[in-house]
Design a binder for these strands. Structure first.
Length: 642
RNA sequence: GGCGGUGUAGCUCAGUUGGUUAGAGCAACGGAAUCAUAAUCCGUGGGUCCGGGGUUCAAGUCCCUGCACCGCUACCA
């Protein structure tokens, strides 16, 4: 395959506008930016799209709460993302917002196409239906029983969903499943990394249903053209951003160029895999457009083994990282702490260590040591070549092979591999430098040979400045200015030559390119715990709504054929109740009988595995440990907690 | 419980269609060197390639089985 022979269109997900950008968003965005910049450096025409997802009931709600119009809110929030990307030196070609008129028109056009479409088995692709279900306001979606936690709550928001029924339009996904499955099996739609392809194919086995593309109650959204009372629902609104941004609705030539003429790559996180790998290609088939070529699912990271979350207060923002390391280094570190496509853990001291090992020691120090040696014998100027030996020729070949590797790795969408390729060159240069002992040559007065060695090394560094440019555009520009060459490399080909520096031009190195950092134990980018607490504040009235009481456990029995569920008969004062809890992995029935526990008593009843649960017991957990809340000293059951 | 995945040096991982002394980066240790940002270079890993069984002239690599962890998902292919 030679994917580098055609234009390149890469996208990130559009980020939900109510979120604040953190390094999770940064990760996707930097990855896409680096890949896009590499393609440009390879001479491949590229288009890089990112943006924000701005419709939803929650946006409407948040705006009301903030006393703003939705428009004001999304304008302000979208700006946070734009600012973050600016700081990270993201060079997107376009920033799509789902509230753009242009996008909305494209969505309407897309929905109209779907509405007019007939499925392969001769049915309308879109039909009206009644949707009954459990609706979580937070998720702004209907949940199925199986989505819920053991307590019957939405797993993301931990609130009980409402029972709701409304008229919706549905997309007849089931009629396209065979086609989509084949696209994936045959890699016409390539799912990377390949383990993810299996996961998607597994979803087909489980069975998929038609999905709803509209909502009746929403007001902040795109109207359904053939039924303006309905608004487009998330997937049919969000996914078309990939085509609206390149002219699906209003510029067919541009659309042709980037959608049909380019290699279309969606970079996504695993949470939206199903929608991108299955829903999106199916809708595109119905709308008579081609599916994307590649969907790359990157990993998530945890911070010190824990999921990044507002409530844990361990969210790292892009700004914090940039403040500490600068944009370029942040870009390099974000992407290279662990392999692309797998989950990884970020440790508190990991960034510094990686920075010192790669950039300060291998890269920056190489620049310093070679530049310094040109000072005396050559007056700090680029020395001329003398006669080349086998060592220089071998080095040159070796660099060329690293450049090839760089190209291959980018072609297979692996930014880590590209970083490896230029770090390899740094190591090769350090090795070459050591083996030639230029400092000894200087003492021996072998100026001719010394010049050759230094020149070769400097040329090699220039090669690195080309290969690393997509990662660290500013640092590389700085380095190229030090080397007195064009600040911006024109093509990766420049990395294959060892004779592009201008002899006699001055090398201007005043301070280390990547100064070494102390490795602090704990003061990595500080988390915004304070801020998240402020965000989470509730009033005393809110708290008072939750009724907590002491209960005594009377009988306990494990719910058969479940891993976690346990059924408890409890006594609250004189009242007896049954509750179900997901603690079987941590407590045996015997351990629980007779215990005094804390129970939420005014929770809506829920059915778990068909067993009614009237309340929720309180327990604390961290990682895989869990402990019940009990009493410090004895009180009768039924006692209230406040 | 089902399906899928993973289990290789202290850590993160590579290991092609089974074939000579199992590799890389980081960390550690020893040495060299001293141009450099206490940076660099060289050397060092008695690793049961998770355990057990099997196929084979030959298995980290294939088959069976047990265990552990992860992902998706739950009366279910």
């Amino acid at each position: 395959m030679n994917e580098l022979s055609r234009a390149f269109y890469i996208t990130t997900p559009i980020y939900y506008v109510n979120d604040r950008p953190h390094i999770g968003h940064g990760y996707s965005t930097v990855a896409a930016d680096v890949l896009a910049r590499y393609h440009k450096l390879f001479g491949v025409e590229s288009f890089f799209l990112t943006g924000t997802d701005e419709h939803s009931f929650n946006v409407q709600k948040a705006a009301e709460k903030a006393g703003k119009t939705p428009r004001e809110l999304v304008d302000a929030n979208a700006q946070f993302f734009k600012d973050a990307w600016k700081k990270l030196k993201i060079e997107n070609n376009y920033f799509v917002r789902t509230t753009d008129e242009r996008h909305k028109e494209a969505v309407q056009r897309f929905i109209t196409k779907l509405h007019e479409a007939t499925t392969p088995d001769g049915k309308p692709a879109v039909y009206a239906g009644e949707y009954k279900g459990l609706y979580c306001v937070g998720c702004e979606k209907f949940l199925t029983e199986k989505d819920l936690t053991e307590e019957g709550l939405c797993p993301d928001h931990l609130v009980e969903p409402e029972s709701l029924s409304e008229k919706n339009y549905f997309f007849r996904l089931t009629s396209y499943l065979d086609q989509v499955k084949e696209l994936i099996e045959t890699d016409k739609v390539r799912i990377l990394p390949k383990e993810r392809k299996n996961e998607v194919l597994g979803l087909f086995k489980q069975g998929l249903e038609d999905f709803s593309i509209s909502r009746e109650k929403a007001t902040w959204g795109v109207s359904i053209p053939f039924d303006p009372d309905q608004k487009a629902y998330v997937w049919v609104d969000a996914l078309p951003n990939y085509i609206s941004a390149i002219g699906y609705g209003d510029d067919r030539d541009t659309f042709e160029k980037w959608w049909n003429g380019a290699r279309v790559v969606h970079i996504i996180g695993k949470d939206i895999l199903k929608f991108h790998a299955i829903f999106w290609p199916a809708m595109l088939l119905a709308a008579e457009e081609k599916p994307p070529d590649t969907i790359y699912i990157h990993g998530y990271f945890t911070v010190d083994g824990q999921k990044m979350s507002k409530s844990l207060g361990n969210v790292i923002s892009n700004e914090e990282l940039v403040e500490r390391f600068g944009a370029d280094v942040s870009r390099y570190l974000m992407l290279n702490m662990f392999p692309f496509g797998t989950d990884g853990d970020i440790r508190i001291d990991g960034f510094c260590r990686k920075y010192n090992a790669d950039l300060a020691n291998d890269f920056g120090n190489l620049v310093s040591r070679s530049a310094k040696l040109t000072k005396k014998p050559f007056g700090g100027k680029v020395p001329p070549f003398g006669e080349l030996t086998g060592d220089e020729k071998a080095l040159h070949e070796s660099i060329k092979s690293s450049v090839r590797k760089c190209r291959e790795q980018v072609e297979s969408l692996n930014p880590n591999g590209a970083a490896d390729s230029f770090m390899d060159v740094c190591r090769k240069l350090n090795r070459y430098f050591d083996s030639q002992k230029p400092w000894a040559l200087a003492k021996q007065g072998k100026t001719d040979r010394l010049g050759t060695v230094l020149r070769t090394t400097l040329e090699g560094i220039r090669c690195v400045s080309v290969m690393a440019y997509p990662y660290m555009p500013n640092k590389c520009r700085e380095l190229r200015e030090i080397l007195a060459t064009d600040p911006v490399p024109k093509s990766l080909d420049e990395a294959e030559s060892l004779e592009l520096l201008i002899e006699g031009s001055e090398i201007k190195l005043d301070s280390p390119l990547f100064p070494r950092l102390e490795e602090p134990k704990t003061d990595m980018p500080e988390t915004d715990a304070k801020e998240s607490e402020v965000d989470n504040l509730i009033s005393i009235d809110d708290f008072a709504r939750v009724q907590l009481k002491i209960a005594e456990v009377l009988e306990v029995e494990k719910v058969p054929r479940t891993d976690k569920l346990i059924k408890l008969q409890i006594r609250i004062g004189e009242e007896k109740r049954q509750i179900v809890a997901g603690i079987a992995e941590h407590y045996t029935p015997d351990q629980l009988i007779g215990k005094k526990i804390v129970v939420v008593t005014n929770l809506q009843p829920a059915k778990l595995r068909g067993i009614e649960s009237n309340g929720m017991l309180l327990a604390a957990s961290e990682g895989d440990k869990l402990a019940l809340l009990t009493l410090d000293s004895d009180l009768p059951s039924g006692a209230t907690i406040s």
